[in-house]
């Protein structure tokens, strides 16, 4: 039986009060949960600790993780339940990526690759003069 695979985007906010190892551990646990259930992780992008725009569970900061994966739809309710139960996950949002979002995602990947290439070229060029200005992460 070939179950249909969808692309998903998941963003979750980890309690940043816990230690770095615990955060890393939690992130790998979430990823392992997806792979064990037959999902395929495309990318895990850790944005890192950020200030929340409003307090969640009395916390003003959170560690953001944004990830992309492919899996069957049946995994999502189970995954969401696991995220809901974990006390160290303040918030999560999973989205099924439709064609538009996939196109947008792919465009952002190729743009990123180009930026990196340009950055490397600039860095190589600027080896003698000042290093390139640090870019703001979006």
């Amino acid at each position: 039986m070939a179950t249909q695979q969808n692309s998903y985007e998941l963003t979750y906010i980890v309690n940043s009060v816990i230690s770095d190892e615990q955060v890393k551990d939690l992130i790998s646990r979430v990823s392992a949960y997806i792979t064990e259930a037959g999902g395929e992780i495309t990318e895990v992008d850790e944005w890192g600790a950020r200030r929340l725009s409003y307090p969640i569970q009395k916390k003003r900061n959170g560690y953001y993780v944004n990830m992309y994966f492919r899996s069957s739809g049946a995994l999502i309710p189970r995954l969401e339940r696991a995220l809901e139960i974990d006390d160290n996950i303040l918030r999560y949002m999973s989205l099924r990526m439709d064609a538009k979002m996939i196109r947008h995602y792919e465009a952002s990947i190729s743009k990123r690759a180009e930026d990196e290439k340009a950055e490397k070229a600039a860095a190589a060029e600027a080896a003698a003069p000042a290093p390139p200005a640090t870019e703001t992460e979006d």
Binding site: Y54, I56, G62, Y64, R91
Partner: peptide, 8 residues
Amino acid sequence: RHVALIPF
């Protein structure tokens, strides 16, 4: 708003 990137 849901993921606290912007305030409610």
